[in-house]
């Protein structure tokens, strides 16, 4: 049971981690993350890196959609902007890895601001459609601006290099991708302890009231788009270094739907939600492979017969979670926490 946790200062009241138990859990997480590369094989390391990239991007989208209430289906396109920026800088200028990433975030943020302009006039589904429109324009640019984007073939990306070490294996990439993703999540968590973050939430809850409270809507909505696209840009940059090739078909509208689904399945407006959602969406289809593998000895030609089942099960799981856990997977975590807070009493 959780007792004696009364906060005595505002600072303590605002802290991200308020109890020793939370600190202990974070400690466990950090230890697990440090130990992971030494214990996981190449396949799980690949997935760990992919989860890190997806968490970074989903966290960005959560700032825009979950916290500011602006539905966007442009996250994939913003990631593509970041990925192409990295590819171009790496190929033509050869600037350092970190600088390329920041540039990727910056470029995507600028594009995000442009795309966000209609958000003052339209919201909800209308804004979602506007962002799809922007994605189509960007897709057209990627495909036809041959000189910069490499046209339909796209671009190959040289491996990232830090202190003269080329990051070519998943083991090496893990040590870069995971801390960056963690830093981005920490940044997002802290954002909502500031005036800006609270303004976003106010806009989400009721934009007219927010304006009455003195929040300039256009500025803050565009800021939200900029921050969210900055995250997408960095995630796209990491993606480019991870897959080492970027093309117009790398980031389709399907990717944008993937991230929106991750945020919704995980829990909108919750930092933990984006993390869990991105992890769920990335890992569940892979974990289901082991399900197929387990049944394989009992079914002839299992790989071919059961693969469609895997896709259906994944879809069904998403629907089931939405039906039974509309607040997202993060709500399950909250419920478990509440249970232990009250334990051994039931209510």
């Amino acid at each position: 049971m959780r007792i004696a946790t009364a906060n005595e200062t505002y600072r303590a009241d605002e802290a991200l981690l308020q109890t020793n138990v939370q600190w202990a859990w974070i400690g466990v997480l950090v230890v697990a993350m440090v130990a992971a590369p030494f214990m996981l094989n190449n396949y799980w390391l690949y997935l760990a890196c992919l989860v890190a990239i997806n968490v970074a991007s989903a966290t960005g989208l959560n700032i825009l959609t979950g916290y500011t209430g602006l539905v966007s289906l442009g996250q994939g396109a913003f990631m593509a902007v970041g990925a192409y920026t990295v590819a171009w800088l790496e190929t033509h200028i050869g600037t350092p890895f970190i600088l390329n990433l920041v540039a990727a975030g910056g470029t995507a943020a600028l594009v995000g601001i442009l795309v966000g302009l209609p958000s003052l006039r339209v919201k909800g589904l209308y804004l979602a459609i506007a962002t799809i429109g922007a994605s189509i324009i960007l897709q057209f640019i990627f495909l036809n601006w041959d000189g910069v984007t490499g046209g339909s073939r796209g671009m190959n990306v040289a491996p990232a290099s830090i202190f003269g070490v080329q990051l070519t294996t998943y083991f090496q990439l893990y040590w870069v991708l995971t801390p960056i993703a963690a830093l981005m999540v920490l940044g997002a968590a802290n954002l909502f302890r500031t005036r800006v973050g609270r303004a976003f939430i106010a806009i989400r809850d009721r934009d007219i009231s927010a304006e009455v409270l003195g929040i300039p809507l256009l500025r803050y909505k565009l800021l939200s788009f900029a921050i969210s696209s900055f995250y997408a840009g960095i995630a796209g940059g990491l993606w480019a270094y991870f897959f080492r090739s970027v093309g117009p078909e790398s980031f389709t509208i399907g990717e944008s739907i993937f991230y929106l689904a991750a945020v919704i399945v995980g829990g909108m407006g919750s930092i933990l939600g984006a993390i869990i959602g991105a992890t769920f969406m990335t890992l569940v289809p892979e974990v289901l492979r082991f399900g197929v593998e387990a049944i394989s000895p009992y079914v002839d030609n299992a790989g071919t017969l059961l693969s469609p089942v895997r896709t259906v099960v994944f879809g069904a799981l998403i629907i089931l979670f939405l039906v039974f856990e509309p607040q997202g997977l993060a709500e399950i975590v909250q419920r478990i926490r509440r249970f232990f807070h009250l334990w051994p009493f039931r209510n």
Partner: peptide, 8 residues
Amino acid sequence: AVFNKLTS
């Protein structure tokens, strides 16, 4: 992912 899984 499949490549990495199978090679592992």
